[in-house]
């Protein structure tokens, strides 16, 4: 599981919002990634199998996961699978990423966001800081309440 300190979020209520990927290697498709040896960045479409990346996780710096619609929740599972396997790099949510979904995304291990439409930073801050307690263990460092209840 990812250690929160290793991510951009690190308790910071304003996760990295980025509109572009300037200055870095462009993320290639899963298919391209699997057929070449030296890519460091890959983009997963919603239906792609995140587990296909696991054998070569160590070489990856960035995994971008596409949200074609905010209603398509497959990317949440993809993110957790990667974090559970020990992926420590940048995990970026791209696409129809809305402010009310960002807290869930953070809990699933995303640490950067490339929303198609601008997010109001004030609303985002409120949204991310709102819940002081969570019921279940996620990919973030938040302690579930059962842990706080029983130590």
């Amino acid at each position: 599981m990812a250690d929160r300190d290793a991510t951009d979020v690190a308790g910071d209520p304003s996760p990295a919002l980025r509109q572009d990927a300037a200055g870095e290697q462009p993320a290639v498709t899963l298919e391209a990634f699997l057929s070449q040896d030296d890519a460091h960045a890959v983009r997963l479409e919603a239906g792609d199998d995140a587990r296909a990346l696991l054998p070569r996780l160590a070489q990856l710096k960035l995994v971008e996961i596409s949200f074609p619609s905010f209603r398509d929740g497959r990317g949440y599972s993809a993110a957790r699978i990667l974090r559970e396997a020990g992926f420590m790099g940048e995990l970026r949510a791209q696409g129809d990423v809305l402010v009310d979904q960002v807290p869930h995304m953070i809990r699933c291990g995303f640490n950067s966001f490339a929303p198609e439409a601008a997010i109001d930073p004030e609303v985002l801050k409120r949204s991310v800081e709102r819940y002081a307690a969570v019921y279940q263990r996620g990919a973030d460092a938040a302690e579930p309440v059962w842990r706080r209840r029983h130590g």
């Binding site: 905010f70 398509d72 929740g73 949440y76």
Partner: peptide
Amino acid sequence: RQWSTFHPEFTYLP
């Protein structure tokens, strides 16, 4: 109930 409340992974199921 507690586990499923705001479960971050399962809020946008099919």
